[in-house]
């Protein structure tokens, strides 16, 4: 085993055999240490939220990971390689340049109610895949809240854990937690920035966030004509998630999801449905 241990011989057999063995051991140890060092570095750089999202994203079924340009019909088949973060995406940039009318490049209208499938989806704001919206304010802050489908999915919550004022949010990091029926669901933050105000009982569940540079901060969010095709898929997904556990709740075609879905079907595995719809593993 070692040159000074009895029976060690400096012959070819020993040198090759032990050389290979030690190389393998060192490689295994080195890889393990490398993973550890990287983990510590990620911790120090506050990348935990980001990694949590990346890990979750990898586990999402392929259709869910569809690129926004597939949703809008600009490309037949494309899976997002950037965890739904178009801010640095070169392909997104190319799409916008090639097609100035691309819905992904529009800015929301100043105001306007919009009903989609009986749900309220006003077009004056941006939407994130995790069922939240971002509404820019004149003072350079944005308001973040659950969209109508998200709100109906959760219904009346038992407990909400909002972030403290002054804390930082990451894109697709945790915005806040809601608890209902013993299940804890993480709501993904649609935007990066500092929390300046939070809602509360009576005021509604929302956050006010100050992002850095509005233009890029909302680039990855869905808007305008992108919302309908996305929502169509989401309702389909919800239907599947609801039928999966065999309780047999269904959203009748063209029917409107009721105000408080969990209340209307208490037997459904809501924990699973929330995990599915709020993109949380």
């Amino acid at each position: 085993m070692l040159p000074w241990v009895y029976e060690f011989r400096w012959d070819l057999g020993h040198i090759i055999f032990l050389g290979v063995f030690y190389s393998v051991v060192i490689l295994i140890a080195f890889t393990l240490v490398r993973a550890l060092i990287r983990a510590i570095r990620d911790f120090k750089n506050h990348r935990v939220d980001h990694i949590m999202w990346q890990a979750t994203f990898e586990d999402l079924p392929t259709p869910v990971r569809a690129c926004r340009h597939e949703l809008s019909g600009e490309v037949a088949n494309r899976t997002c390689p950037n965890e739904f973060d178009c801010r640095e995406c070169r392909t997104h940039e190319l799409f916008l340049r090639k097609n100035p009318a691309s819905p992904g490049g529009t800015t929301p209208r100043a105001s306007g109610e919009e009903q989609l499938f009986g749900l309220s989806f006003p077009l004056d704001r941006y939407y994130d895949r995790g069922h939240t919206w971002v509404q820019p304010d004149k003072d350079g802050t944005v308001k973040v809240g659950l969209n109508d489908l998200g709100a109906r999915l959760i219904g009346s919550v038992e407990n909400v854990q909002l972030p403290v004022i002054g804390s930082r949010l990451e894109v697709h990091g945790t915005a806040w937690h809601v608890t209902r029926g013993g299940a804890d669901t993480r709501i993904l933050s649609p935007i990066e920035g500092t929390v300046v105000e939070v809602g509360g009982p009576g005021k509604g569940w929302y956050l006010k966030v100050r992002p850095e540079g509005m233009e890029t901060a909302v680039r990855h969010l869905l808007r305008g004509a992108e919302i309908k095709p996305w929502l169509t898929r989401e309702l389909e997904r919800l239907q599947f998630a609801l039928s999966a556990d065999g309780v047999g709740m269904s959203l009748a075609d063209g029917g409107v999801p009721v105000e408080d879905l969990p209340k209307s079907s208490p037997k459904t595995d809501w924990d699973a449905v929330w995990g599915e719809m709020f993109l949380e593993a």
């Binding site: 295994i28 890889t31 993973a35 550890l36 990620d42 911790f43 890990a55």
Partner: peptide
């Protein structure tokens, strides 16, 4: 979080293993 981050990094090196 620490487990998740470690798992994530370990998984990235899975090709070595």
């Amino acid at each position: 979080p620490s487990y998740l981050v470690f798992e994530f990094n370990l998984h990235k090196l899975m090709v070595v293993f």
